[in-house]
Structure formats: C-alpha cells, structure tokens
Computed example of a mutant assay.
Amino acid sequence: MQCLRDEEALIPRPRGALPKVCAVALAAVTIGGIMFLSPEGLFGWVAMAILILTLGPLLHGICLLAEEMLLHSNTRYGGRGLLSHVLPACGLGGTTLLAAALACLLLYLAEHPLPHKGQCCKLLFLAPVLYALFKSLGVLSPSEVEVSDICEGRKMNVAHGLAWSFYLGYLRLVLPRLEDSIAAFRSSWSRESRRLFILIPLNANISHKLENEDSNIYFYDNLPNNEIDRAGVRGRVYKHSVYRVLDEHGKGHECVVEYATPLLTLYNMSQESSAGFGEPERRQQVLLFYRTLRDILEHSLECRNRYKLILLNDELGDDPHFLSKTILRHLRQQEKEEFCLTPPPQQEMAHPFACTPCTPPKVHPIHYSDPMSREPTLMLSLDSPQPLKGPVENSDHYQ
C-alpha cells in the first residue's frame, strides 16, 4: 500500500467549506462584540454594512451590463432574454438583490436610528462607487485560489475536459474489449495482468517507446486490433502494446502498458508561449487530470477492474529502472489484493458428530459454484401446504 500513500500525498484534495466556517465564526465574534459594547445601534450598523457590501457588486454588475447589452447581446447570448441570461451573467442575480432588499428593510425597521445620519449616507454612496472602480481596475480581482476553486467546482479546467475526452473517446470503447483481446492473444495469461496499465507522469513528458525509458522493459507484441465505427470512420483501429518487464531476478512479466495520450497536449501547451501555460500550471493540471480520470473510472461499470492508473513522480525518477520497478510493484500489489479478495475454498467434515476417536473423520471437499455463472431458475414445490405446528412441551420438570 506504499504506492497508494505516495499518490494521496501528491494529489490535491477538492477544496472544502473551511473558509465559510471561518467567515461565519469571525462574523459571529464581531457581531457579538459589538452587541456587548454598544447594543443600541447593532441592527442599524449591520444593515448599513450589508448595504455597502451589496451595492458595490450591484454597481459593478451594472458596468458589466452596459458592455454586454451594447456589444455582446447577439453574439454571446443569441438575443435571449435580459432577465433570464444577461443579468445573472453580470452578477445581478436574485441573491445579491435579495440581500440588498433585506438590508434596506432591516435599516427601516431598526429601533434606534444611526448616529451622524448624514455621514452614514455619504459613506453609503461613496463606498459602493469606489468598490466598482477598484473592481474594474483589477485591484479587487479574485485571487488565484478563488479562480481555481471556481474552475474546479464548475469543471472548467483543461484537465477536466481532457479526462472526459480520454474516457468517452477511448477508454470506454477499448476497456470492455480488452479481456477478449488478451484471451485471443494468449489464453494462458495470468489473471492479474489482464488490465491496461495507464502511466501518468507528473512532468507530462511522454516517451513514445517505453524501452527508451528503462532497459528492463522490452516491447513484446501488439494485441489484436479492435475495429470500431467511430465518427464516420468505418473500422477505426484501436490497438494496445504488450511489454515484458524484467524483475530483479531477470524473470519477465508481460502486461499491457501505455501512457495517457492527453498528457501530450498538456506538455505541448506548456511549450507554446501563446498558450500561457507554464510548468507549475502544467503540473497542477496533470494532478487534476489524474484525480478526475480516477473519479470517472471508479464510477464506470464498463471499465471496472479493467485498468490500473499509475502516477509517476518525476522527482523520484533518478533510478534508471524506476519505471520497471513501479510497474512490478503495482503488479504484485494487484496480485495480493486479488488473493485476499478470493481466498481458496475451505474443507469441512461431512458428519462432525458421527466420528469416534478410533475412526478418523472423513473429509469431503466442498464444491463451490459461482452463482453468477448460472441462469436463474424457478423452483416449485408439489407438496400441499401444511398447517403450522403448535408449541410442544419437551422439557422435564422435577418435583
């Protein structure tokens, strides 16, 4: 299980609700302090603060709405309704408007008016205008964490699109046919190697020949081609390569191995200056690609138990045989997992109470049958129904 712990240490987790909890706690402490120090103007100050915070985004949304309506209403929205599409796209949704309306109502219903009402009105107008100005100039632009959270939450990253394309356009087509291809290639193959090993290096630098990466890996042969009609192409060919991996004793282990081809796109994007895609962004996208592809495949019934994702950490790749050792470790781990999941059948005695010390018990092996390998049958009884038996007293009572 060492490789699984190493992968979990590298893969970023989805962002949770800790910032919301901290914000709620901070607001509760602040409001509690104000209530303790000066409870007479609490509702008025809370309403004023909510108005300042909501009017700023509303004014900035109006600035965005001006350009969208004048220049992009037809090209970006296709002439669709103002209320249903353009207003929510500019941030003028119902949530912000509702918060501003509730703040106005709270300010109106406040029992104690705010002191220095004239100064509060000036602040109420000045703060939202300055917010809209700073927001438009980029001073109050969202941070990298916020942008990353939005992109990951709405599945807008490059890695999400590549992972779904790799699954829908390739893995979902070939993995259900993989076992039949291996059986047609060599029926005596061991069960633990009848999976597709997908290599995902963190640096996204993929070699087109695995033997160039590790001298203990040799190309063995290709599996029979799978021809699938796809996107107007009759008999499009999908193929897999079989490699022989040598262990420390020189024994060969055959398995179907290949790199995740979408990583070539990520690597080429990082080499193009116009893509604006540097090495740190590429590494982050590779990790998101691995996490997204793993989640997709775990919920896919067609691909279950037909693949193995191997994340390769390039920082630990100084060993010239790092790739072969990693593949062999996953092979052995998979073999141990399947051995634990399918233990050998046990033997039981046919008549455990009929044997005597002089007579050794007769042991009969139990023959197990796979319930999923039989067709369901309906069993009918020809006996007439019998009434239920009443309670029978069978205990002895001694006076």
Rank of each mutant, 00 (worst) to 15 (best):
F125R: 00
G79I: 10
A99K: 01
L173D: 00
H116W: 15
L137G: 10
A132R: 08
A100Y: 02
H112A: 15
C104E: 06
A183Q: 12
C120F: 05
G78M: 05
S190T: 14
E111R: 13
S165D: 08
E144W: 05
S165V: 03
L98W: 04
Y170F: 14
R177G: 05
G94Q: 11
R80N: 02
A89C: 07
D180Y: 01
S181N: 12
N157E: 13
Y108H: 12
F134Q: 06
A159M: 00
K135Q: 10
L123Q: 06
A132P: 04
G81I: 01
V129M: 15
G153M: 00
E179N: 14
L124K: 06
V145G: 09
L140G: 05
S188R: 11
L130W: 08
L126N: 03
Y77E: 03
E152W: 04
C104M: 14
A183V: 09
S188A: 10
L82K: 01
P88N: 10
S187P: 05
L83C: 07
S181Y: 09
G118V: 11
P115N: 01
A183N: 11
L114W: 02
L82S: 02
E179K: 12
W164P: 01
Y167C: 06
W164Q: 11
G93M: 04
R177P: 03
G93H: 02
L92V: 04
C151Y: 09
C120L: 09
K155D: 15
D149Q: 03
R177H: 15
L92M: 14
E111S: 11
L87H: 01
Q119M: 06
H160Y: 14
A99T: 06
D180V: 08
V147K: 11
W189I: 06
R186P: 02
H85R: 12
Y131H: 15
S148M: 12
L162R: 02
H160R: 00
L175E: 08
R177D: 14
A103T: 10
P115Y: 03
L102M: 14
K155R: 14
L83S: 07
L178C: 04
L168R: 08
P88S: 07
G118M: 06
H112T: 15
E146W: 07
S165E: 05
V139H: 06
V139Q: 08
L98E: 08
V86G: 08
A127Q: 02
V145F: 05
H116G: 10
F134C: 14
T96F: 11
A100M: 12
T95P: 03
L114M: 13
K155T: 06
F166V: 01
S187C: 08
P176G: 02
E146V: 12
F166W: 01
L105S: 13
P128K: 04
L107T: 05
E179S: 13
Y131I: 01
G94H: 13
Y170P: 00
T95G: 09
S136P: 01
G153Q: 03
L124T: 08
G81W: 01
L82T: 14
V139R: 03
L175N: 07
N157Q: 12
G93Y: 04
